[in-house]
Each structure stands twice: as structure tokens, then as C-alpha cells.
Design a binder for these strands. Structure first.
Lengths: 214, 214
DNA sequence: GATAATTTGGACCGGTCGTCTGCTAGCGGA
DNA sequence: TCCGCTAGCAGACGACCGGTCCAAATTATC
């Protein structure tokens, strides 16, 4: 038998087993996943690692076995979030079933539902960390900006498709519009957290799409 | 003489009389002013009292003489900022020399210059604290939302003036537009801090005013 | 049994908020 | 005059928390 797949062969790891029964090998994964949840709520600086450790049921001493530092943990969380979000974005923006512009609109609706599911406590991780950029370890700012540029690129592509379909004026600058979209959207998300309601998201969506050049 | 009113009869308390001279208020004032600077950079939670104390040259022990708690300090700072910003807003939005829409545009230009003056390290205090809303003492969120509503109201009035002048379509919903403006603007400010440059602010302004219904 | 791999409890150190105590300045009363 | 009282202020302290590190504990593999 060639290389065995991950789920068929149990690795039978050596070493001291976890005290609390946990899916072996993905303690690190669980920490990152929990980190995404907590950091989208509280940001990076004011979040203690004890908090996420306790939530996952991992002892404090174990942390530095999985990550070099809090900074490294933050980076891992951010990467995970970026990947997760890029997938989500593609799922909507590449949907061949609906028109390009409608895809973007549906993305905002889905995100709005997502915020409601978490009672508007969680925001956008990139937005949250962006606010803390002056306090973050060096290089974080650039990574955040790169992620936003990536999202912008995807939206810009979608807008160009809309142009080809005649949904959007041909002379519109899709890059600028995409940047404009994300600024407004991040602002709307922030505001939705503040009022603990969907209204800002709905209002933004309404106004943005209404004012798009035909 | 019947019950004397509080301000006519002086109790003639013993002991050293309250100073009430400038010195007392000056120190408090200096703390608040410095607080505005620091909190617009770092937010509330992750800012230490000691930091602002050191910057003003006030000993640690004196802080709780001027403020009941860190929370009370935060409230004072926020009030000061709101008042300052409302004045600034009025200065631009009520300027009779230029057309209403141009007033709003000039405000954004002025704010852009302001961010440049501080090397894009300082953002909007309301935006910053809004991001931390889940970690802030109770009631902060409502105060922040109230301040934003106040700003929105002022912008909405300005937009209505623009309508009267024919700069804006009569059927435009000024309240919605004002809310839309502030969401986008806060997002742009946040982004400008991230990239440490004026481009997001310029781009937002451009797009927003370009897409206003005529 | 030796070794390597993995997990863990707890110690360390620095920083934070808030308090406690005490000093000084100036006025009232004896 | 001078003692005591009160208001303004300052330094030290305490309790706590957060990030980091390490040595011990526990198991699989050789």
C-alpha cells in the first residue's frame, strides 16, 4: 500500500498523551480556530492567551510547544482567517448561477447573516487588527494590507465581469470601486458591531449598489 | 430668613479652602488633552494610565485625585473629543462662503491634512473605541453611537441644504446618505492608518461625491 | 532499558489598576 | 500665636494578570 491517507492510519503519536481527551494532532488547529473566534471579537493586543487556552482546554504550559510566541500565534490565526475568507469570497463571487453584481450583493447578505449568528459581537479580523496596527508587532500592518488588496482584487474581477455583462458602466474604474467597496464595508461592519444590529450593513449595501454607475 | 439657598449661604467650612485656581483644572485638562492624543492612537483598553501620566509629568498617585477611575477618565476624554469634533464639523459645514456640498468635501480635505500631520498614527477616537466596544465598560457603546448620530445629523442638515441649492437630487434620502457617508469615512480613516498614507481618504472622497445623485 | 517525542505544571518577571498612607499648604478657632 | 482641621497632592504598595520559559512527567519506539 502506498502513502496511507490521514484518516485511515492512526499516527499513534509518541510522548505524553494530552490530559483531556482531544483529537490528536490538531490541538494546534483547535487553538488557531479558537483564536480566530476570539480575535475577531477582542482584537490581538487585549486578548490573553490564557483565555483561548482555557476555552480549548489546553494547559498554559503547552502553548509554547505549539507556537513560538504570541506573535507567531497571531500570524497563524490571521493566515487561517485570510484563507477562510478568500474561499468564502470565491464561493460567492464565482457563482455562475447568478449575475456578477448579484454575486457581490449576495456576499454582503451572507456576511450580514453571519454577523447576526454571532450576535454582532464578532467583526472582521482584518479590520480589528488594522485598528491596532500601531501596537502590533512589525510586519503585521503589511500583511493586513496585503490581505485587503487580495480581497479587492477579487471584487475588482467580479466588477469587470459585471461590466462585460452590461451591469456596470464600461468607463467605471473597477479597481477604485473595489477599494471603495471594502472601505465602506469595513466601516459598516464596525458600525454593525456598535449598534448590535444589521441596519448598517443593509444600508450600506443599499446605497452602494444604488449608486453604482450603470 | 427661611431656608437659605445653597449658593447664598456659605457654610464657612474649616480647613484649607478648595484651590479652584487654574492649577487644579489645568492638570486635569492636560491629562484629558493628552488622553485624547493617546487614545486616538492606541485605543482605550491597551492604554495604560501610567503612560499618559508620564507624558504629562503627573505622578502616579495623583491620577485618582482627578478621576474616579480609568473608566471615568475615558468618558471625560470621549466627551472632550466629541465636543472638539462637533465644533470642527460646524466650522466647515456651516461656512456660508461655499456651497453646502463643497463644505463637506472641504471637511474631508481638512481631516486628511490632519491625519498627515500626525503621520497617520492617529485615527478617529470614536472609531477606535467602537472596535473595542465588547471590552469597554457598560454604556460606552451607547455614548459612541450617540456621538456618531450627532455627526450624522449635522451632515444630513448640510445635505438638505445642498438639496435646496440644487446640488443634490431632491428625492435623495439625506439621512441615509449621511449614515452612508460616515460608515465609509470611518472605514477610509482606518485604512489610511493602515497604509500610512492619504490615498484611501482621497479615493473615498472622490468616489462618494462622484456617485451622489444629482 | 535507553532514547526520543510530546505534554504539562508551575515559576519568573514585568506591567497594570487602584488603594493606602502620609506629607504639605493654608485657614478657623482657642 | 499656634494647634488642628481639611483640601491637594505624591510615593509606595498590593493584588493581579500576561507572556515566556523550563524542567518534570509520561508515553512510543528502538
Amino acid at each position: 500500500m502506498p502513502i496511507s491517507t490521514a484518516h485511515t492510519n492512526i499516527p499513534k503519536r509518541r510522548g505524553r498523551p494530552p490530559k483531556t481527551a482531544r483529537d490528536n494532532l490538531d490541538t494546534r488547529d483547535a487553538l488557531i480556530r479558537c483564536g480566530v473566534e476570539v480575535l475577531t471579537e477582542q482584537g490581538f493586543v487585549s486578548t490573553g492567551i490564557d483565555g483561548v487556552l482555557r476555552r480549548v482546554g489546553v494547559p498554559k504550559g503547552s502553548f509554547y510547544h505549539y507556537f513560538d510566541s504570541k506573535e507567531a500565534f497571531g500570524r497563524a490565526v490571521l493566515e487561517r482567517y485570510a484563507a477562510y475568507f478568500a474561499r468564502k469570497l470565491d464561493r460567492w463571487l464565482l457563482d455562475p448561477e447568478v449575475s456578477p453584481l448579484e454575486r457581490l450583493r449576495r456576499f454582503t447578505q451572507d456576511a450580514r447573516d453571519g454577523m447576526a449568528r454571532h450576535d454582532y459581537r464578532r467583526g472582521c479580523l482584518v479590520g480589528n487588527l488594522g485598528q491596532e496596527v500601531t501596537l502590533l508587532p512589525a510586519g503585521f500592518g503589511e500583511q493586513l494590507e496585503a490581505i485587503l488588496q487580495d480581497w479587492q482584487r477579487r471584487v475588482a474581477v467580479c466588477l469587470k465581469l459585471a461590466q462585460a455583462r452590461g451591469e456596470l458602466a464600461i468607463d467605471a474604474n473597477c479597481e477604485s470601486l473595489a477599494a471603495y467597496f471594502w472601505m465602506g464595508w469595513e466601516g459598516a461592519v464596525q458600525r454593525a458591531r456598535l449598534v448590535k444590529g444589521p441596519e448598517p450593513l443593509t444600508l450600506f449595501s443599499q446605497e452602494f449598489f444604488d449608486r453604482l454607475p450603470r
